[in-house]
Design a protein around this nucleic acid. Structure first.
Lengths: 136, 136
DNA sequence: CTGCATGCAAACCGTTTGCATCCCC
DNA sequence: GGGGATGCAAACGGTTTGCATGCAG
């Protein structure tokens, strides 16, 4: 888990998956990526998308977000950062907040867990949804 | 969302659901609760469990946790607190960390979202899983 | 030639929903 | 008697998996 196998073959599918993931600022779900990739690789299967996302997340090439909601989301940005999720439309965006090392430290002291990670997620209404607030 | 309807009938099913949820220190999934409740109410349906958990979460009687993992988890403790999830066995426990108001403040400044909540989740290996570490 | 990667489809799991029945007010 | 609550089972959405085929090394 700390030293994942860094060597996987970069097949056409994986390459394009990476490119599409890298080109969006969003944090797409597997299905959204499937749709994006399918424009360039019409015969790709959903299973391949899931398999490769999972694989690339395991190898640390991409990040599998541990955010709320019922779908998994992926991110080409693997540097630590936090997220904010719109509670109306479900969109997930990055939010710049200083990493809270002291919180992690104090958490580590209070538990007998071997802490390997943390994540912070804010939720709220995004500007778009605030506009159309009373509708829908 | 801020003023949820506080008045729902406390039926037998809801009462027992609440009792069972309150008596565990874990953060059970709907299925786990279903199993617990079924010992006292053998004919209860899974649908009822889901419907009532959802309803009670909406009314603010209980908390629906926004943690990672593929299943929703529920909590009778509605005061704000944070969680730590074992990355091996998936167990979720409470962790006592001071609420980080300043982080929330600074987050609010950096985004045009109307922030209504946040949650922090640590992940790591729980003591039990550390013991049996190399097994499984 | 060999084995990993793929496409496809069926299986799976957690959750939601429609509906007939039941029970409480 | 009427309206919400329940049990049941079928439907659903997202994800995983088994398998035959394809392709790169």
């Amino acid at each position: 888990m700390n030293a994942p196998d860094p060597m996987i073959r970069i097949t056409t599918q994986r390459q394009i998956l990476l490119e599409e993931l890298g080109k969006t600022k969003n944090h797409p779900t597997a299905c959204e990526l499937y749709d994006m990739v399918r424009k360039r690789l019409p015969r790709i299967g959903l299973g391949t998308v899931y398999r490769n996302l999972e694989l690339m997340a395991d190898t640390g090439i991409i990040l599998k977000l541990e955010v709320g909601g019922s779908q998994k989301r992926f991110d080409a940005e693997i540097e630590p950062h936090y997220h904010i999720r719109c509670c109306r439309c479900g969109k997930v965006e990055n939010i710049e907040v200083d990493i809270i090392q002291d919180i992690v430290q104090s958490a580590a002291k209070k538990t007998s867990y071997d802490i390997i990670g943390h994540h912070v997620e804010f939720s709220g209404e995004c500007p778009d949804c605030q506009d159309g607030s009373s509708k829908i």
